[in-house]
Design a protein around this nucleic acid. Sequence first.
DNA 1: CGTTTACTTGACACAGTGTAAAGTTGACAT
DNA 2: ATGTCAACTTTACACTGTGTCAAGTAAACG
Lengths: 195, 195
Amino acid sequence: MSRDLSDTRARILNCTWNLLESGDKKVRMTDIAKVVGISRQALYLHFPTRAELLIATTRHIDSVKNVDARMAESKAATSGREQLLSFISAWGGYIPEIHGMSVALRNMRDSDTEAAAAWDDRMQAVRRGCAAAVGALAADKMLRPDLNEEVATDLLWTALSVENWERLVRDCGWSQKDYASQIKRLAETALLAKE
Amino acid sequence: MSRDLSDTRARILNCTWNLLESGDKKVRMTDIAKVVGISRQALYLHFPTRAELLIATTRHIDSVKNVDARMAESKAATSGREQLLSFISAWGGYIPEIHGMSVALRNMRDSDTEAAAAWDDRMQAVRRGCAAAVGALAADKMLRPDLNEEVATDLLWTALSVENWERLVRDCGWSQKDYASQIKRLAETALLAKE
DNA sequence: CGTTTACTTGACACAGTGTAAAGTTGACAT
DNA sequence: ATGTCAACTTTACACTGTGTCAAGTAAACG
């Protein structure tokens, strides 16, 4: 089996991913190089900066995990309520798989504009999912009458933040299952019109 | 009017505070020194590290703003529901006043254990406020029957995070008034038993 | 055989924090 | 007036981590 044209690049991405998800907060270029088994400088032959390496890793994870497909699934739902719950399942279930990544990217926001933009991009994608679910609720006349679509989207988007997942699951010790069911219940009580 | 024994220390704290709340994300020791009008090294005569300077600044703000008293006010409420709303007002209204500070402290969490502990401390204080409000609700038999006090506290505490305030007010462009009223509504629908 | 490609080694610039040492300045005590 | 102490200054340097640069190696390929 001959080496792929860019076997090393793929190895770097996978190792970076592993390191990030292993929970070691310190993931320096040196650490990554060591795990990949190349020199630190060689990393810069493949990625111009640490920020771009992280961004590329995000994209790599997304494609391996098929995130778009997973998020899009909820749109097949037959009712607004179903779409809401299905979207929460999809995104809420994805968070733990990208959590390490998300922490790293977030920590670069202040120092690196590109990293900030990449992170915002992802969050805006989530927001679109929220907006779609809220739109479906509204179409079903199931949105609380005292909420307009934008405010409801903002609220749902906020509830589904990675930071809230961190607090509930990591800080409060909730299981992933509890997290998902409570957030669903919260979304239902906060957004749905009473029957 | 003669200089206080530690006039400089107070000036450092005030300038640090101003810088943090002015929204300039970069607040280096050099920046602080420049504004205070002393040399960078002189800062180290008063505070051993940047982390300790930030922590001292938090305490300084808290004492100037009388945070304990403000938080404690809600405990005078006559009903659980009132206590809940009053606590949300108190803490939710305090967040914008300490936001810059909170960002700086949070950004040090990874690099400095003491900063992390100081931040956690503050958050645990908020949590106690949440627990008190939830306890008052429970005493009134007004807590949703499908929630126990701990889960309800976790949820309220999460809803009241600085990160959620940031997202709604800064990212979504909500006014402070909208933030407060929506969070109150959210807390009521999510935690209160239906009449 | 020479060239290209992927990598290595080693040195260095830069930012920001923190340390160290010697010098200045003003207040205060005797 | 003189000495001493405290608060501060200036200069210099160590350390960490990112990113750059240049020269060298080694295998693959035509």
